[in-house]
């Protein structure tokens, strides 16, 4: 996983609530066995017209937001399916940070696992950042993870909260399987206890 430290980038505003994971990447694109390559179909229904041409009105089809690395939306971003293809599609498009007043739980988790930083901020602040974003390339936002602030184009700083463990993993680009396996003795201890206390727990064998 790529480390996330400080990101100074163009931000795109998508002022909608309940952007679901089907919208981020429709189910028919989930047939891949890879993590990469989904960027071209990110927001497929919004980005392309029925004839396959780009929809010129969609923000990510316009300059300079084609190169956006930050996305700002309204409430409940990523609701619906658990598909990690949603953050994979965003990442493959180039998005490294998503900002919204609220997120769906699984999507929020999935972002961290892929080096995407999801930031919760009140709706009024999202509105201000969307106004910044609308100014395009003259108005880059800087997301400073070590200091936990977003620096606006006018220099004003917006602080944000993040779970310390997740911050650590993002800053170091760590995969958490290795972290968990450091606790293997405790996992074994748990398993021994469960075997004793729940002997009825069935193992599955299918011929």
């Amino acid at each position: 996983m790529e480390k996330f430290t400080t990101l100074s980038a163009i931000a795109a505003a998508l002022p909608e609530a309940n952007i679901d994971t089907d919208k981020i990447i429709p189910a028919r694109f989930l047939k891949t066995t890879q993590r990469t390559g989904l960027g071209k179909n990110a927001f497929d229904a919004m980005r392309y017209l029925p004839d396959g041409k780009e929809n010129p009105d969609f923000v990510l089809n316009k300059e300079p937001w084609r190169k956006a690395e930050i996305l700002i939306t309204y409430d409940n971003l990523g609701c619906g399916s658990s598909r990690e293809h949603a953050p994979w599609a965003l990442l493959d498009f180039g998005i490294r940070c998503v900002i919204a007043p609220s997120f769906a739980d699984i999507f929020f988790n999935n972002c961290f696992k892929n080096g995407i930083l999801p930031i919760r901020l009140p709706r009024e602040i999202c509105d201000q950042l969307m106004a910044d974003a609308s100014m395009g390339s003259n108005a880059r936002l800087t997301v400073d993870l070590p200091r936990q602030v977003i620096v606006r184009p006018d220099g004003q700083e917006v602080p944000f909260e993040i779970d310390p463990f997740r911050k650590h993993l993002l800053l170091e680009g760590l995969d958490d399987i290795g972290q968990t396996l450091q606790h293997e003795t405790n996992i074994e201890g748990y398993e021994n206890r469960e075997n004793r206390e729940k002997p009825w727990m069935p193992s599955i064998h299918i011929d």
Binding site: S81, I106, N109, K113, D176, L181
Partner: peptide, 21 residues
């Protein structure tokens, strides 16, 4: 019972656990 992403699927496969609050 709850849904998880693919990175967590891999985590459960390797460790039989998941990190949660």
């Amino acid at each position: 019972a709850f849904g998880i992403g693919t990175s967590e699927v891999e985590h459960v496969m390797a460790t039989q656990t998941i990190l949660q609050r």
